[in-house]
């Protein structure tokens, strides 16, 4: 299964599922990331982690360990 962590800079994808149900995931959903939401991978930080994504027209940063729990398609 492809995850948010696998995207390359500039690549766009649609969220299709969450592998975790912890507080971080709940927080991300309140920030507007849910099944069907389109996300664009913007870039990773100078040390490769965390990453920056574009979601609902704003930019959000999260760690790769969390991005790995977000399944995407497309």
């Amino acid at each position: 299964m492809k995850t948010l962590n696998d995207l390359k800079p500039g690549e766009k994808a649609t969220i299709c599922g969450f592998a975790d149900r912890d507080a971080d995931m709940a927080y991300l959903m309140e920030l507007g990331m849910m099944e069907g939401t389109t996300v664009t991978f913007v870039k990773s930080a100078p040390l490769g982690d965390p990453i920056e994504i574009d979601v609902r027209g704003y930019h959000l940063s999260l760690r790769r360990s969390r991005a790995r729990a977000i399944q995407v398609a497309g």
């Binding site: 507080a23 971080d24 927080y27 991300l28 920030l31 965390p50 920056e52 704003y58 930019h59 959000l60 940063s61 999260l62 760690r63 969390r66």
Partner: peptide, 9 residues
């Protein structure tokens, strides 16, 4: 520890 943060314009 976790890190989820908005990067404002």
């Amino acid at each position: 520890s976790s890190f989820v943060m908005e990067l404002p314009p």
